[in-house]
Structures are given as structure tokens and as C-alpha cells.
Simulated assay, not measured.
Amino acid sequence: MDELIRRQRAFAAARDWEQFHTPKNLAMALAGEAGELLAEFQWLTPEESVTVMDDPDAGHRVRSEAADVFLYLTRLADVLGIDLVQAANDKLDEGERRYDAATYRGSARKAPPLS
């Protein structure tokens, strides 16, 4: 992850793009790319969505859009000083507290907010 972040910083610096990589712009770009990823699934059935990577063309598009989402997210986190791995682990810890396996196994219901 650290190497990817260093590569992104160098990529942006070589093109003098840091000036455009504000949190607002990166968040907007991330949302746009997430929309492009979503569009790849828009008219698929649930069954087709599970096997989308079996189609070489569709799989390539999904992989490319997923990479765009990941890259914008990691760049945004870097600009804001967020350690994404730590933040993800913290979020999983919170999920484990909110959704104990015995109560929520097989259920899609939301847990009440932590107090």
C-alpha cells in the first residue's frame, strides 16, 4: 500500500496535478468513478452480476473501474492523512461490536447506533 501511495504521489507531482488534488475534487472524482463502476452492473440480473468477470470485455471494464475507484480513494486518503488500512480495521472492529455473529448471522437488518 505504501508503494502504491508513493507511486501516486510521484505520478501527480510529475504532472503538476497536486494543485487539482484537493479533497473536494478527489471526492467528486471518486463519486464519478463509483458511478462508472455501478453503470457496469446497472442492467445485469443478480445472477449475471456474480459472473461478470467471466466475460472478458465486461470483466476488463469492471476491473478498470474498480481500479479507478481504488486509486481515487487512496489518493484522497493520502491527501487527508488517513491511514486506510487502519481506518478499515477500525471500521471492522466497530462492525464486530455492532453486529455480533450470533444475533445477525444471515440477517440484513441494520443494528441500532452504538451508544
Rank of each mutant, 00 (worst) to 15 (best):
T51P: 00
R9I: 03
R61Y: 07
D55L: 00
R6A: 14
A31E: 12
E47G: 12
I5Q: 02
L4S: 05
R15K: 15
L4Y: 06
H21I: 01
E40I: 04
A27H: 08
E18D: 15
A10N: 07
T22L: 04
D54S: 11
L37T: 03
R9S: 00
T51D: 09
T51V: 14
L4Q: 08
Q19V: 15
A10H: 07
H60G: 02
R7H: 08
A58I: 01
Q19G: 13
L44P: 00
Q19C: 13
E36P: 06
V52M: 06
A29E: 06
G35H: 05
E36A: 04
E3G: 00
A39T: 10
F11Y: 11
A39L: 13
E48D: 11
Q42L: 14
E33Y: 03
G32T: 11
A34W: 07
H21Q: 15
T51S: 10
L30R: 01
E48M: 08
T51K: 12
P46F: 05
A27I: 07
W17Q: 10
M28L: 14
A39F: 12
N25R: 09
W43P: 05
P56Q: 01
F41G: 03
R61E: 13
Q8M: 09
R6S: 14
A34H: 06
E48L: 01
E36M: 02
Q8H: 03
N25Q: 09
T45F: 00
E33T: 03
D16R: 10
D55P: 03
N25H: 10
M28T: 12
A12G: 02
D57H: 14
E48C: 07
T51G: 05
P56Y: 06
G59C: 00
A31Y: 10
D54Q: 10
A58Q: 12
T45G: 06
T22R: 05
G32H: 11
F41D: 05
Q42D: 14
M28W: 12
A29C: 09
G59R: 03
A27R: 08
E40C: 15
P46W: 01
A12E: 08
R6D: 12
E36R: 06
T22D: 04
F20K: 11
N25T: 06
A34Y: 06
R7M: 02
